[in-house]
Amino acid sequence: MNQNLYQPINGEIIDIIDESPTIKSFVVVPEEEFRFATGQFVELTMPGEGEAPFTPSSSPAITDKMEISIMKAGRITALLHECEKGQKVGIRGPYGNGYPVDDFAGKEVYIIGGGVGLAPIRSLFLSLVERIKDFKSVVCRYGAKTPADFIYKNTLFDSWQKIEGVNIKLTVDQADGQWKDNVGVVTTICAKDDVDVKNAVVVICGPPIMMKFATMKMLEFGFKDSQIYLSMEKNMSCGIGKCGHCMLGKYYVCKDGPVFTYDQIKKYPNIWD
């Protein structure tokens, strides 16, 4: 028998962290060795129910377990939100290309995130800070709906901000009484002089509408299409470029992505929908 790419490996959820009213992080231990590159995704199976694609939010350097942050958005994610520690799951993957971290060396990495889009970005962020000296700087702009919707609150507001070479700014769409920082969509905290446009790459991950406007803003700032890295959210099912669900123009997002530069995909219809 050739290797069966549809066969999940068994895993177990050993911890569940409430991140926000709609997002939980699941710590998953695969029964077999499982390595991924930052930005790659996995298909997580709720046994007997179905599977869905998620990009792990933990560092690829941790190989005995991975963290996956999941927003309650559909049937499978709702089931995952209901489950408890000890839940058995299936894992297929990892799939796709991931972020080309080595290509970012010597540059400023300008990360723009929104909502649960911080999950893949966290994995990238952790990969970058593990070798922070290789990069000129890591500049992060992140927006959530309300202060309660921020995820990774412990590290986001504290330890991450203290890392040398890292600059983080946060915003919310809607403030509460405690929030003293910026109010507005994430592009309102992006400024042209955040990074040196000539020697930087942009990484954008978040809801489609946010990615669209962040991309437009970056083009305004003078970034080239090829400097803008986008994590595309499509309906990845098989993960191996066959079933067709995730097609974006000629690309299979599962195999050729999920990370694309804007110049690769801009000519195709409805990329933000």
């Binding site: 549809y6 709720m46 046994p47 007997g48 599977e51 994610t77 809801p207 309906n235």
Partner: peptide
């Protein structure tokens, strides 16, 4: 791909689909 359960095991099934179906490319969000 869809998943089913029997008493003591789970299975993943593969079934024809059509790109003409409205929800074909829809994501959970």
């Amino acid at each position: 791909l869809y998943d089913t359960k029997k008493d003591d095991y789970f299975s993943k099934m593969k079934m024809w689909d059509s790109c003409m179906r409205i929800a074909y490319a829809e994501v959970a969000g």
